[in-house]
């Protein structure tokens, strides 16, 4: 690990004042410390934001406001979250291990790096790690890469379970700027597509800090999270789906379906939600949704299986959610 200076400010304002080019915030550290050991990331200053009191879960205009340093464990076990946002509890519990969930935070989960093995291997080219060097993943081992939103420069997928549920719940990210100002952005618009700049992953500007994630009042009571992976626990998703639905008089009145394991960012497709909304649930409808979802998919030989796997999982999830 490269040497760095460690700072632990006591207020959010002083943390924002301390951040500078080359510095990094640290909260749980479960991803950043790993990346620093591998020297994939080498900040010269590490600013500890774990004790700034950003760890509260509060009622918020019918919804909840989740502080950036709320741990994945505390969020999954929160009584309101279990009651009103079970898809979020389920997604969190499907991710990582008990030890990691006790450290990993809400803000850090949103900002976690891809697990593309080439991003972690500093001996291989990677446009995300070292812009302009090329992509070893394209043409390399591909089982865990994205099939939606990819570009000729990057096929790395976003590995979060939590963010998939948050996409289906229409989460909003609350951001503090260097001047202390606050801005909010829909999670939908928070992540960027890789295109020709895979190093730019979110709309966060230098010096900005995630303060919280906000969830509006739940729009559906039928919430399902399903995850398919190579082992029964403690593995990243090959495919995962978080669905929030509501039914009225036998028809789907609200549909929000988000996907993990297949997209360069936590994926949601308005055309899928629109197709389902207002319709009576049926096998044919769910199959059509799977076709629409995959209309622009760009699988490789190594990820071709994800197309059918996702479509079958979607059918199972929608069947469960509409029963």
């Amino acid at each position: 690990m490269r040497p760095f200076e460690y700072q632990r400010p006591t207020t959010t304002d002083s943390a924002l004042a301390a951040i500078a080019p080359g510095a990094a915030f640290i909260a749980g550290g479960t991803n950043l410390i790993d990346l620093m050991k591998l020297e994939v990331m080498a900040p010269d200053t590490v600013i500890d934001i774990s004790r700034l009191g950003m760890d509260g879960i509060e009622e918020d205009d019918g919804g909840v406001r989740i502080g950036a340093t709320v741990t994945n464990s505390d969020l999954a076990a929160d009584r309101r979250v279990r009651r009103d946002y079970p898809v979020l509890s389920r997604a969190l519990l499907a991710g990582a291990s008990g030890q990691l969930r006790n450290k990993a935070t809400t803000g850090g989960n949103l900002l976690q790096k891809t697990r593309c093995p080439y991003f972690y291997d500093t001996d291989t080219p990677c446009n995300k790690r070292e812009p302009g060097t090329g992509c070893a993943a394209i043409g390399g081992e591909q089982r865990n890469h994205a099939i939606l939103g990819t570009s000729e420069h990057c096929v790395a997928l976003h590995p979060s379970d939590m963010a998939v549920a948050m996409r289906a719940l229409d989460a909003v990210v609350e951001i503090r700027g260097a001047g202390g100002e606050t801005r909010e952005i829909d999670l939908e618009k928070f992540y960027l597509l890789p295109e020709d700049r895979p190093q730019d992953e979110t709309v966060l500007e230098p010096g900005e800090l995630i303060a919280a994630a906000r969830l509006p009042a739940p729009k559906g009571t039928r919430q399902v999270y399903r995850k398919v992976r190579d082992r029964a626990s403690y593995a990243f998703a090959l495919v995962s789906i978080g669905a929030v639905l509501e039914m009225e008089a036998g028809r789907i009145s609200h549909a929000a379906v988000a996907f993990g394991g297949i997209g360069v960012k936590p994926w949601r497709d308005g055309a899928v939600d629109d197709l389902l909304t207002g319709e009576e649930p049926s096998e044919g409808l769910f199959e059509q949704a799977g076709e629409v979802l995959m209309r622009d998919a760009r699988p490789s030989d190594g990820t071709e299986f994800k197309v059918g796997l996702t479509q079958r999982l979607l059918k199972a999830v929608l069947t469960e959610a509409t029963q």
Binding site: Y6, G29, S73, G98, Q99, L100, K103
Partner: peptide, 9 residues
Amino acid sequence: RRINACLSL
């Protein structure tokens, strides 16, 4: 709380 001591400064 249980944690991975290797991933914590």
